[in-house]
């Protein structure tokens, strides 16, 4: 019993930290993007205010049961992704619920939230959300391919499907990181990360000039608040996962912050400097070089 309580407490702390870290990352990035625009940008605590404000709305309109469930599925997806990733290697508190086959479960959870959101957004009835959901799902399917190939290559390389073991195998010096031992798989994975983070040129789901912010068009008040919460958790969860897989994990919280921040900056820098792809261009992109890189990585380690 005490074990369970302790685990629950640890999980709670872990989620709380990662939520705030996600929001901080968000605020930081807004500031950095603003500098690229030549602006000062919003204060760094703006994401907290935004989230508080959306929860504090006095009215909320629902369009049906699925509309309720959409954001909840999304949050479940985000939480699920995070809870099965060991955030900090060797830390009991941030080990979360990691177990031997967690990599597969995490990959499933990355998908899960999107699907839930698709149902919720569809119930909203706004045609733009429907279009954006279609775009999102097709793009996701396409970046899932290089990502899956990259993960398969990693699984072959490390003979494991446990994130903890993959991180453990990368310890002992910078040259043990996957980015140096298996650069092909790493680059395939990083391309997929660009797609997952949905910054330009892969921001076809939220594309404000095309389908004004897409799936959450009808979401308001606490529905949007849940989505914002999820965005912070899911973002950091993805970054932590990629850090674990490719950058050797982290042994303390500062290393984690540094590495995830660098990973996120990759998306941000690419996002600031490129316009948006069309849907089919994006799909074609993922099925091109990144997939070939992934395939090559798998084949090399098969041999």
């Amino acid at each position: 019993m005490a074990d369970i309580l302790r685990t629950a407490l640890y999980l709670f702390i872990s989620v709380f930290v990662i939520l705030n870290y996600g929001l901080l990352l968000n605020g930081l990035v807004r500031k950095i993007v603003a500098r690229a625009h030549g602006r000062v940008g919003p204060p760094i605590w703006q994401p907290w205010l935004d989230i508080l404000k959306t929860y504090a709305k006095r009215s909320a309109i629902s369009h049906g049961v699925m509309f309720f469930l959409g954001p909840i599925f999304r949050l479940a997806g985000g939480l699920g992704t995070y809870l099965f990733i060991p955030a900090i290697y060797g830390s009991v508190m941030f080990a979360n619920l990691s177990f031997s086959g967690d990599l597969l479960l995490v990959m499933y959870f990355i998908f899960f939230g999107q699907l839930g959101m698709a149902l919720g957004a569809g119930e909203g009835g706004h045609p733009n959300s429907a279009i954006a959901v279609g775009r999102g799902l097709s793009q996701m399917t396409s970046f899932e391919l290089p990502f899956a190939l990259s993960v398969i290559a990693l699984a072959i390389q490390y003979h494991s499907l446990s994130i903890t073991e993959i991180v453990a195998a990368q310890q002992g010096g910078i040259l043990n990181w996957t980015i140096f031992t298996n650069p092909l798989a790493t680059f395939a994975g990083l391309f997929a990360l660009l797609g997952m983070n949905m910054h330009s040129p892969f921001d076809i789901v939220l594309a404000p000039q095309e389908v004004p912010i897409g799936p959450p068009t009808e979401m308001q008040s606490s529905f949007l608040g849940i989505l914002q919460t999820n965005r912070a958790i899911f973002l950091s969860a993805k970054l932590v996962l990629f850090m674990n897989l490719y950058l050797g994990g982290a042994t303390n919280i500062f290393a984690m912050m540094l590495k995830t921040f660098m990973l996120y900056m990759l998306s941000v820098v690419v996002g600031v400097s490129f316009p948006r792809f069309r849907t089919e261009q994006s799909i074609r992109f993922f099925l091109g070089v990144p997939t070939l890189l992934g395939l090559a990585a798998v084949i090399i380690f098969m041999l």
Partner: peptide
């Protein structure tokens, strides 16, 4: 025009 293709910074610079 840049904004319509999702290239935000140009809009910021040009309008400034």
């Amino acid at each position: 025009h840049a904004g319509a293709f999702g290239l935000g910074p140009i809009g910021q610079w040009a309008v400034t």
